[in-house]
């Protein structure tokens, strides 16, 4: 386990140098503003809003609709009511704020129930996905950096 951490740290350090400049930052290297926003794209690539819509509605990926109602995804059944509806999110929040909320909403709302989608450590008894077993290796964030960007791009299309 310790070796994994060292290796990860080594990779993270390399990522910081020009050698892997196009690699997304490790979750722990993402820079948040005081209010929880993330100014820089995690990938340097524009997000794909259509892909983001699919991620938001798919139970096995982002599953945003488990907790949030999104009228734009009216064909996705059983939308939840635990979090606020996302209609108009692109008017209420800036892209940087939405990126911060999707990546780690606890930086914006400290007590929120919302899971952190670009985070891979600091958990209590994390498991191997939904098996109930211990993880067999280092944890991956729930969404990849590009998936986060795609979801942010989709949310930005949800205007009042």
């Amino acid at each position: 386990m310790r070796n994994h951490i060292r290796l990860a740290a080594g990779i993270a350090a390399l990522c910081g140098t020009a050698a892997f400049a196009s690699e997304p930052p490790a979750p722990s290297d993402v820079v948040y503003t005081d209010t929880g926003a993330v100014e820089a794209s995690l990938t340097g690539q524009p997000g794909d809003a259509a892909s983001g819509a699919a991620i938001a509605g798919d139970k096995s990926v982002g599953n945003c609709v488990a907790c949030h109602m999104i009228s734009d995804l009216a064909d996705v059944p059983f939308q939840g009511e635990v979090g606020p509806p996302l209609d108009g999110a692109g008017s209420r929040w800036s892209e940087a704020e939405l990126r911060g909320i999707v990546a780690n909403a606890k930086k914006t709302f400290p007590e929120t129930m919302m899971p952190s989608f670009y985070k891979n450590e600091g958990y209590i008894r994390p498991g191997d996905a939904y098996t109930g077993d211990a993880p067999s290796g280092p944890l991956e964030p729930i969404l990849t950096a590009q998936q986060v960007e795609d979801v942010v791009a989709y949310l930005m299309t949800l205007k009042e």
């Binding site: 008894r125 498991g127 939904y130 109930g132």
Partner: peptide, 12 residues
Amino acid sequence: FKGCIRDTRAQT
């Protein structure tokens, strides 16, 4: 209980 904790992506 086992199922609920599993569904948080935890080691149950």
